[in-house]
Write a protein that binds this DNA or RNA. Structure first.
Lengths: 246, 246
DNA sequence: CGGCTCATGTAAAAGCCGTTCACATGAGCT
DNA sequence: AGCTCATGTGAACGGCTTTTACATGAGCCG
């Protein structure tokens, strides 16, 4: 009856316009605030200005909303990782590290998505689209690992790219999940999560025999002739991947 | 009124005997079944055979129960890690890898505890006792890293033990959280989580310059005279830390 | 042994949430 | 204008959390 309601109806088109989108946005905000566990279907409805039953016209239940958000999260995640990887430019190792940073940045800047994707208890296989999105995201890491593996110094056995990808993923997820979540109470660290992960990945790559000091890394993705000293123990950059934190 | 109730009263002593313990056990079972998110205070009360209000005599609210379980989890975790570390016997690297395996074993065998500790959204600092227990557990890893760092091959800069500990923790947590949770739907892997983590840690240690083939590792914790070839690139075990999975 | 007291448990109630169902409404088509 | 179907509403059910007033019986004190 109130003119306010009429006006709102006018602003948006039909009934609500696009309740589905509004609910997704509201849920995203609520999850960012109170976590996926604290998020409530009714709250999202209230925030969108509709009754508590309305959301059921767009989502089978609360879990489906969560799953939709997780799916969207994986899609954005994929595009961020893709951009960071930038097809291995300017060189494979640099791009690889950028992917690691992008992983952490996503966890930090999109806590709601990250929460829905990895910490909400939504099983990845609850929804084929979700599963597919998750795999597409992982495939970025996998493709990067593939390129990196191809650069393995000759003479040493070539590491399986899949394994490398899983290792990198576990490191990034471990750091993000333990140390890199914004406002929520987390552990105290002697260095930033970014630095922590960067050092971890560098040490790991060195363990695989990759030269990890920038000087020896050619700018092209094509394997340059590796100077023999680069894969020996003395190729360690002075100070190591750690060193004084800035 | 029912004789059944009377009998139960007889079996246990006073009122219930030890409701607190019964509630903790019930909650543990429920969390193992349905996850920390699905666990309900009322269910635990029902399982213990008391009214829904009774638990409030022992826990301020549901969160405090969860936090108590997380605390207990960290205590058991600490004792498991301590046993696995076994003060670095028979040699530091072997013991170190055993700690990694113990980490995964705990996540796999005590999903309820692991869930409450790391995935329930309970902030570590919600309870000083919880925080302390968590730190004690981490200190095991830290102490192990300290011993390992002391073995760093001479000539190379010594890695900070704290950083190593954080790296190892993030790897173990990453693998456990992404791949190593029992019944819940998880990703498919080309190798077991244990193998994945073992390879990851070995590569990492090699990246720090540690000799990682067993032959070159003395049984004592005292640094043996490191043969110079052990820290060079040719010290790689044939096949690398991966190789055919058994 | 009798009675007091306090910890421990119960019942009932308020408030919230998820979910369902019958019903209302209005957008777009004929 | 009228039909129809997608979309939103209101009311209702059961369940959960938490609080409050009340019950009970264990252990102590005389």
């Amino acid at each position: 009856m109130s003119w306010r309601k009429e006006q709102r109806r006018a602003e948006r088109g039909y009934h609500h316009g696009n309740l589905k989108e509004a609910l997704l946005q509201a849920a995203l905000g609520l999850i960012a605030e109170k976590g996926a566990a604290g998020f409530t279907f009714a709250d999202a409805a209230r925030m969108a200005g509709v009754s508590a039953a309305a959301p059921y016209r767009h989502f089978r239940d609360r879990d489906e909303l969560l799953s939709s958000i997780a799916q969207r999260g994986f899609e954005q995640f994929e595009s961020r990782l893709t951009a960071a990887w930038d097809d291995g430019r300017p060189d494979t190792v640099t791009a690889f590290e950028r992917v690691g940073k992008a992983y952490l940045a996503f966890a930090r800047e999109e806590p709601a998505f990250y929460n829905a994707m990895f910490e909400s208890g939504v099983p990845v296989d609850s929804n084929p689209a979700l599963q597919a999105a998750s795999e597409r995201a992982f495939n970025i890491i996998r493709a990067a690992a593939e390129r990196l593996a191809a650069l393995a110094p000759p003479g040493t056995p070539r590491p399986p790219a899949m394994m490398m990808a899983l290792h990198i993923w576990s490191m990034a997820h471990g750091v993000a999940s333990l140390f890199s979540r914004g406002d929520a109470a987390r552990r105290k660290l002697p260095m930033s999560p970014d630095e922590l992960l960067e050092a971890e990945v560098l040490i790991y790559l060195r363990g695989l025999g990759f030269p990890t000091d920038r000087r020896s890394q050619a700018r092209s993705a094509e394997p340059p002739p590796v100077p023999p000293e680069a894969s020996s123990g003395s190729g360690v950059p002075p100070g190591g991947p750690w060193g004084k934190p800035k």
